[in-house]
């Protein structure tokens, strides 16, 4: 017994055991690293490994619970989205059935070539090489890949006269394809066209595409008319003046299409679209038929509409 005054500090066998255990620890630390590694791995494998997996699973319970909560939230959100999408699909189906929307671009058209131009200063009427022999009748709509050309006004056996949209008497009910603002497309002199009767503060912007609205029951919906090139508002007026750059270059027009049937329905009258406040215009005088020698006879063929026109929804009727 080692004493410090009256306090017992150490006993000999305690010191002996301490020395022995410290020596054992020293021996352990003096082992080669491979031995230490093997000893450690073996003891861990025997003493702890059997319970490591349950312990790991116990530890992962918390993260699994959090992940489960997160997945439940995502599932609830996905269910809500699915419900909304289903409702939207059903609503879409209902609206489609209400609007009687049908397959688009199912018109029957006859191709024609421009065979002559009636003399006029700025906007000549066109003569085409198709007539009543090809099924054309007055009032049928004529268009080109670039946009609306006009309507047939008179037919003969193998030719017809087309009044273009650049004629001062022509009016086309038009719509802004982006903002659905309605107006009346007409010429303001030559190929300078405007969208008339557009209320002030309407959402019409430069660059908007103007197409026929189908409301006039003459031109079907969706035929391109032009692009907005300027918007002018005047304080003294209740409407704004929309300048439209026409989509059609009539001077370079050679081939065009005449809608003779299909979903477009019966051909409407050639009279300009009924616009409130605009007096009816008397029909123009028929011009003489051109010599037969100048006519070019091309057999009528059914053609597929250009893709751009097929994409446009049909409305009206």
């Amino acid at each position: 017994m080692i004493r410090l005054g009256s306090v017992k500090l150490l006993r000999r066998h305690d010191v002996a055991l301490l020395a022995a255990l410290l020596l054992a620890s020293l021996v352990l630390s003096a082992f080669p690293s491979e031995w230490r590694q093997g000893l450690g791995d073996g003891v861990v494998r025997i003493c702890f490994a059997p319970l490591e997996l349950p312990a790991f699973q116990l530890r992962s319970l918390r993260s699994s619970w959090r992940e489960n909560e997160s997945l439940r939230d995502q599932l609830a959100a996905a269910r809500l989205t699915a419900i909304r999408l289903t409702e939207a699909r059903l609503e879409n189906d209902r609206l489609r059935s209400l609007l009687s929307l049908r397959e688009r671009g199912a018109w029957t058209v006859v191709t024609a070539q421009v065979s002559g131009r009636e003399p006029a200063l700025l906007t000549p009427d066109l003569r085409i090489d198709r007539g009543s022999d090809d099924g054309l009748r007055p009032g049928m709509i004529v268009f080109a890949p670039d946009g609306v050309v006009g309507a047939v006004t008179a037919v003969q056996g193998g030719s017809a006269t087309v009044r273009t949209v650049f004629d001062p008497q022509s009016r086309v009910s038009a719509i802004d394809l982006r903002s659905r603002v309605l107006g009346v497309f007409r010429t303001a002199g030559g190929t300078h066209c405007i969208l008339d009767r557009v209320p002030l503060r309407s959402d019409v912007r430069v660059g908007d595409t103007i197409v026929s609205s189908g409301y006039g029951q003459l031109f079907p919906f969706g035929l391109p008319l032009g692009t907005v090139s300027g918007v002018t508002t005047r304080k003294s007026s209740l409407t704004c003046l929309i300048d439209v750059s026409p989509a059609l270059d009539i001077n370079r027009l050679t081939h065009l299409f005449v809608i003779t049937g299909g979903d477009h329905g019966r051909p409407a009258s050639l009279e300009p679209a009924a616009v409130p406040g605009v007096p009816p215009v008397p029909p123009r005088r028929r011009r003489a038929e051109p010599p037969a020698a100048l006519r070019i006879s091309v057999p009528a063929t059914r053609v597929e509409l250009p893709e751009t026109l097929q994409m446009l929804p049909e409305r009206g009727e």
Partner: peptide
């Protein structure tokens, strides 16, 4: 300490000595 050292074989004997002391 020896069991704890088995998780760190590089310092085998360290924990055993420390906890003995």
């Amino acid at each position: 300490g020896f069991l704890a050292d088995c998780y760190h074989p590089a310092t085998m004997g360290l924990c055993a000595a420390c906890y003995t002391v």
